[in-house]
Simulated scan of single mutants.
Amino acid sequence: MTTLPRPGGFRGDLEVVFRSAYPRVVGVAARVLGSRDEAEDVAQEVFLSFARSSVPAGEAMGWLSVAAAHTALNHLRSGRRRAAREESAGVEDVVAGDVADAVVTLDERRRVRAALARLPRRQAIALVLRHSGLSYAEVAAALDLSSGSVGTTVRRAESALREELIRHASSD
């Protein structure tokens, strides 16, 4: 059943869907972006789009998960505020721990995010959703795949990610 928008433009089931899906949406976005603050910004965008949509409530979790991954990848690809965020995070991390470890960790995260952004969108999303804790069945439903092909898609995405990391290792 599709819930039609109320006169103000938002869905009647928004609060229920929001309460149940918010942690997953933020989790998926945080997995891509590496920042809870940025992930919460993405979640806000995603729920605003959902609020104006006619997506059936029963399909909301899959739709929201994919939308979170898409939106987070868009933010990642645009590079908006990323450099400033990593620098500020680096300063805080260095105070708490070893300087060399903090620098290596930040560099590795930056390289993985950059490689993820270069993957084909479907592979990147499958990888993000699976590593965000979604089951094979949930990833399959979200990406309109058969459950049997999720493992293959994720393995190919992991392989492609490794290749991207190797290919750009010398240039980074």
Rank of each mutant, 00 (worst) to 15 (best):
E108K: 11
Q44A: 15
R130L: 04
A141G: 13
V46N: 09
G79D: 11
E92C: 03
G9T: 05
A137W: 02
A100F: 10
S171V: 15
R110C: 03
V32M: 07
E163C: 08
V46T: 11
R6M: 14
P120L: 01
V17T: 15
A142E: 03
G133A: 04
G8I: 13
L134P: 00
L14E: 10
E164G: 10
H75A: 12
F47C: 09
S159W: 03
S135F: 06
V150H: 00
V95H: 05
H168M: 09
L4D: 14
V128D: 00
R113D: 04
V55E: 05
T71I: 10
F50S: 03
L119D: 00
G79H: 08
P56D: 09
V25E: 06
L4Q: 15
V55T: 09
A43G: 10
S146F: 04
I125E: 07
V139F: 02
N74G: 14
D98P: 11
V42L: 08
G58W: 05
L161C: 09
R6H: 12
H75L: 15
L161P: 07
R111Q: 13
R113L: 01
S171L: 12
L73S: 04
A124I: 00
D41Y: 07
Q123H: 12
S49M: 14
L161T: 06
V128L: 00
R19K: 15
L119K: 02
T105D: 12
M61G: 03
G34S: 08
A102N: 13
L116N: 04
A69P: 09
R81W: 13
D13M: 14
D37N: 11
S149L: 03
V42D: 06
T105H: 11
